[in-house]
Amino acid sequence: MEPFKNYFNQDLIEKTADIFDRGPARFDRKHFVTLAAAELEGLELKERATQIMHALDQTLPAGFDEFEEAVLASLHKSEDPSGEGLTFDGSGLMGFAAWPITDLVTHRGLRAPERALPLLKEVTKRFTAEFAIRPFLVEHRDYTLSVLNGWVDDRSRHVRRLVSEGTRPRLPWGLRLSEFVADPAPILPFLKALRDDKEDYVRRSVANSLNDIAKDHPDMVAEIAHDWLKDASINRTRLVRHACRTLLKAGHGKTLAAFGYEPVAGLTCDLSLLTPKVVFGEALEFEAIIKAPVQKAPVMVDYAIHFVKANGGTAPKVFKWKDAKLQGGHLCATRRHAIKPITTRRYYEGSHKLELFVNGVSVATADFELCI
């Protein structure tokens, strides 16, 4: 979100003030602008949103009835302005401009979920309340789950997505839902109900939630994948594959089997290094010839490079390669893997290892030298 740091600027604050100034509730515009814009340049994106939230808290009516009326009146007239997420013309809160309000609804309404949750439902149609709803799942878990259960069939795609995205156990940048990390059973019915949603936007959220769950319960997600893939549509198959992306990359046996990637009996692999010595900035090149005593078999071919670490040890990094079929029991492929400067890795010279996997099973290794 760093590239959007300056989104919350003086102009946005003035437009926000205009919206509430013409609203039905009492509002101290001048005081709000002063508080919201104080030392703005030194703040990061989230800090700016929080400062605007506190400024609204101090200048909007304290009573929840008047506050609710003011919030509803401030929202963009369209219930689905998502395509304009970074555009804010001041006609009504939408996109990132509505972020401070989602936080304020939680700040004021956490002790009154019966009032706050319906308000978040309206705001999420203009900007996601996936972060704002999470404290309610911690403080009022059962009640919030019962409310979300009534939203899985809502006509708004944003509300339906809030059900799956707001309950993700490990939502990036969001409050971790430790209870669901330990036991995701309470949210699984939501994911099942939304798996065939007509909107890809919602289905991808379901997939991301399952991917979260897979980090702690891989066998559970493998079983879900096996069940959901039975007579699955193209869209559901894509969802399940996206949900299992981490497990497939890791070569998790039960997940691979759910997709039909079983160990192939009698399979052999000749792995040849075309560049046994690699100069930093160039590329590792290799060829694999895979054979098996079967005419056709689905194979997922991955490889790992065991990179040398600062202490002289090695650590593997897995890379996707091919998803294919052994035609006539044979597959030949070459690969060029660039070894060049990247921000996420520091390279060390010395002996590295290349390892090849077919359907999650290690089938060949070869050593190469990296020269820096």
Rank of each mutant, 00 (worst) to 15 (best):
F136H: 02
V71K: 03
V358T: 08
N235I: 07
V123H: 11
R345E: 05
R29C: 04
Y348L: 08
L175R: 11
V358R: 00
I224V: 11
K340P: 04
L162V: 04
G312V: 00
E114A: 02
V221L: 10
V33Y: 12
V206S: 12
L148F: 15
R111I: 15
Y7Q: 03
R170D: 00
P186H: 13
V361T: 04
D154R: 15
P276W: 12
P316Q: 10
A222D: 05
G109T: 10
T237N: 09
H306P: 07
K325V: 07
V308F: 02
A257K: 15
S164A: 05
R335M: 08
P341Y: 09
R335I: 03
G350L: 08
N9M: 13
S233A: 01
T102R: 01
A62M: 06
L72M: 08
R245G: 11
L267S: 01
Q327T: 13
A288R: 03
G109I: 13
D21P: 09
D302Q: 14
I187S: 05
A17S: 15
I289W: 04
T255N: 11
G150M: 10
R155T: 14
Q51R: 13
R345N: 06
G266C: 03
F136K: 00
F4K: 03
R29F: 03
R204K: 04
R48H: 08
F368L: 13
A243G: 10
N211W: 11
G83T: 03
F67I: 01
A265D: 14
R157M: 09
P118H: 09
L60E: 00
M94Y: 06
T246R: 09
F4R: 03
A70L: 01
G174Y: 07
G253Q: 10
T59N: 03
K309D: 00
F307I: 01
R176C: 07
